[in-house]
Design a protein around this nucleic acid. Sequence first.
DNA 1: CATCAGTAGTTGAGCCGTCAACAACCCGCC
DNA 2: GGCGGGTTGTTGACGGCTCAACTACTGATG
Lengths: 163, 163
Amino acid sequence: MNSPRDGMWLDSSQQQAWRAYIMGTELLLSRLDRELREEHGISLSEYEILVRLSESADHRMRMALLADSLSHSRSRVTHTIARMERDGLVRRQAAAADGRGVEAVMTEAGYRRLVDAAPSHVRGVRQHLVDLATREDFAALGRVFDEVSDRLLEGLPAGTDIR
Amino acid sequence: MNSPRDGMWLDSSQQQAWRAYIMGTELLLSRLDRELREEHGISLSEYEILVRLSESADHRMRMALLADSLSHSRSRVTHTIARMERDGLVRRQAAAADGRGVEAVMTEAGYRRLVDAAPSHVRGVRQHLVDLATREDFAALGRVFDEVSDRLLEGLPAGTDIR
DNA sequence: CATCAGTAGTTGAGCCGTCAACAACCCGCC
DNA sequence: GGCGGGTTGTTGACGGCTCAACTACTGATG
């Protein structure tokens, strides 16, 4: 969509934006992860799983759907759910209609953990990202990464494991 | 659905942008990392280290400076440089002026690896990110993450280990 | 109704990062 | 000139993800 004369390299403002993005992202995500761990004993991925479950009917989801909705590999979701089950935030249950299937069900404790963690986590997201940007810039960020996700997911639609 | 008391939660467009960012970023970075590994046998962090070294006088840098310039922890840089040294991309050398210091020096093989990897890596960055956005949107992204980095780094200026 | 390609999920080895503890060194100060 | 607090870099245990191989089940097809 851009690139003057379709050069091979990034020009210096592109380069600068790219480096800011990589560094900022690493700082941001590791900070949010650390805050969740220290204050609530869960990782960012675990938090995201709790959010998906809380939005789902009956607080339950098939493993594959959970994986797809987070763009995580199935293996990753298996491992994460195993840890969360050990911590009592979730339990597994064989799927009714499919003998291969497993559903992850959020427990009462899992729900309470999410309710506890959400306010300070959201505050962190605001403080370290959202409130630093103008509405327009933040909207631009949304547009860009919608497009990024779409492109990176196309060609492996529905059911393909991430990789 | 949102904003009881204006300002605690994200509104739905902010929420959507935030989720796009997290998912897009995870997809993007893991894709770029995998491409570098498969095509050139180095990780994205190793690539970034090679870039910094190549930009530095005499292709050498103090460990702490390397860590700061990437916002990586010192421990992380130690481990990464150890792997790169095993692979012959870099060697360590005691710093002349400071008995505690260590310099990482890019080897000839390291430089060749970077030169080999750069074109396809940059192509990936363009294809999966830069060329998907308008110049304005991409510039917005740069502004946002400059600000993010600044805020997350302030209060621990120069010499504080990342954590 | 037996076969078999495809799908769901798990497993464990290996890699890469964090964390906390640590040794070695620097330097301002009395 | 030796204290003592700060800095540099390393270490190893641990956690979490990837990858490839695996089991178990499904469902279309002859």
